[in-house]
């Protein structure tokens, strides 16, 4: 019988995963994308979703990758958590405006739109948002610790934040 080793589970872009304590879960290089963590402090279980777009109606593809969009992604993450939504809490980071352009097409404001879409979904499912580090113009790498329920956020230009 070996010791229980703590693993860091990585979530890619437009992807979602769920882990149990003592593992941590992380996603790297969030720009306009948003990383949403849902966690249950009782079962020490947490899921991380890395979305790119606010709404699946933007999809012009035949097959939908649910983890790419805020609406379908939040729903899928709740299902994968497998616990009552009344036990879930949320923290999130990302949604930056990485570049400023004078001719702002709507698509270029995607960061703030992603943040708004996630908040709408959380309200819809009545999940409290207990911490957020969103907006600005820095990329973020985030890691959630299931044992402490803390979200560690690292940026290149603004150091580390813990929520």
């Amino acid at each position: 019988m070996g010791e229980i080793k703590q693993q860091v589970i990585k979530v890619g872009i437009a992807d979602l995963k769920v882990v149990n304590a003592p593992d941590t879960i992380r996603t790297a290089g969030l720009g306009s994308c948003v990383g949403l963590v849902l966690y249950d402090q009782v079962s020490k279980r947490a899921g991380l979703l890395h979305i790119m777009l606010p709404n699946s109606i933007l999809s012009r593809s035949d097959t939908v990758n649910v983890a790419k969009f805020a609406d379908t992604g939040v729903k899928a993450l709740i299902e994968q958590m497998g616990v009552s939504t009344t036990r879930l809490k949320a923290k999130m980071a990302g949604g930056a405006q990485m570049f400023q352009f004078s001719s702002q097409k709507d698509m270029m404001r995607i960061g703030p739109r992603n943040v708004g879409a996630i908040k709408d979904q959380l309200k819809l499912h009545r999940i409290p948002l207990l911490g957020e580090d969103v907006g600005g113009n820095s990329g973020r790498t985030i890691e959630f610790d299931t044992a402490t329920s803390l979200l560690h956020i690292r940026t290149v230009n603004a150091g580390e934040t813990i929520l």
Partner: peptide
């Protein structure tokens, strides 16, 4: 000047 993931995903 930032993480390449944050830049390219844009």
């Amino acid at each position: 000047v930032d993480m390449v993931g944050a830049i390219i995903s844009y």
